[in-house]
């Protein structure tokens, strides 16, 4: 991380490119990340959106964006990005687009779309080598409709459709994307703003498909008080439940390794969606299984 303008938190621009006044919940972890991403990318950016919470950022006649926004549908935001990018390229080639009128093309999607009906379009955009940044805010469920289980809901989490906790494990979108060998893949979280800013900056300098999976703690869907947003994010990283990493040239690098991982219970206990693992009695088997999967992950990580 040498070639970065973000050495410190105060280096991150605060031009408020993303306007306030949106309909996102108080304490939205996704909004926190999108705000920062817009700041780093600047206003010559178009956000091509898939149906999800962030669709409601723009409701006529209100929009928070300083750049542009195009809502498509739940399944095909990457195809919308393809159409925009292709059109910009062909118009530039034909002399109908001034260089300063060009745009960075960003897909803005939730995990429900990214791991479900949008996965095919995402995979195909990678296949085609589309020059775009794909941002998935991952709130681990269909948040916009009241937090039903999605393929990215973690083991044990209660959702509106898994009252006793999800029996499935979280789908590894990072791994799926990385296997397609795009130009850049990374995870991030809004509560680690310098790490996030560096990754967005790095992605913006690379041509080709760049994918960013941003954990988006959701007070409404996860069951925590909104003021705990940053704390929950820190716990996700500190316990190793949310590894911060990136892939470049096929090599995975962990950008922030917790020096001594805290027990994952600390992260789970702070969220209502895992309360049934502790009360009325401890679900030792599930708790152990979650801890084991975190441990197993980190055993594969070579630090340095």
């Amino acid at each position: 991380m040498k070639d970065t303008r973000f050495a410190h938190l105060k280096d991150i621009p605060s031009a408020h490119l993303l306007g306030a006044g949106t309909a996102m919940c108080a304490g939205c972890g996704g909004l926190l990340a999108v705000r920062e991403i817009h700041e780093v990318l600047g206003d010559r950016t178009v956000f091509v959106n898939a149906a999800g919470c962030m669709t409601l950022l723009s409701t006529y006649p209100f929009t928070p964006f300083s750049g542009s926004f195009l809502y498509t549908a739940m399944a095909s935001a990457p195809a919308g990005a393809q159409g925009v990018r292709d059109a910009l390229d062909v118009l530039a080639r034909k002399g109908r687009l001034a260089p300063e009128d060009d745009l960075s093309v960003v897909v803005l999607t939730g995990d429900g779309s990214a791991s479900g009906m949008g996965l095919s379009a995402t995979s195909a955009a990678i296949d085609r080598g589309l020059d775009f940044l794909y941002v998935c805010y991952d709130n681990e469920g269909y948040g916009n409709t009241g937090q039903q289980a999605s393929a990215t809901t973690p083991l044990g989490a209660r959702t509106a459709t898994t009252e006793r906790g999800s029996v499935a494990s979280k789908k590894d979108l990072f791994g799926i994307w990385a296997a397609n060998r795009p130009a850049y893949v990374a995870t991030a979280i809004g509560s680690e703003p310098v790490d996030l800013a560096r990754k967005v900056e790095k992605a913006s300098k690379i041509r080709g498909p760049k994918l960013l999976l941003v954990l988006a703690p959701c007070p409404t869907g996860w069951g925590f008080e909104s003021d705990q947003l940053v704390e929950i994010g820190r716990l996700a990283v500190k316990t190793g439940a949310w590894p911060l990493k990136e892939v470049e040239g096929g090599k995975i690098v962990h950008t922030k390794v917790p020096p001594k991982r805290a027990p994952v219970e600390e992260y789970l206990r702070a969220q209502g969606r895992f309360a049934h693992l502790f009360e009325p009695s401890r679900d030792e088997a599930t708790l152990a299984s979650i801890q084991q999967s975190v441990d197993a992950y980190w055993r594969t990580v070579t630090v340095g």
Binding site: G19, A20, G21, T22, S58, Y60, T63, P64, F65, S66
Partner: peptide
């Protein structure tokens, strides 16, 4: 057309 011509009109919403 249901589109917004401009930036940050959301700030008119007093959340």
């Amino acid at each position: 057309t249901a589109m917004v011509h401009g930036a940050r009109t959301s700030e008119l919403v007093k959340t």
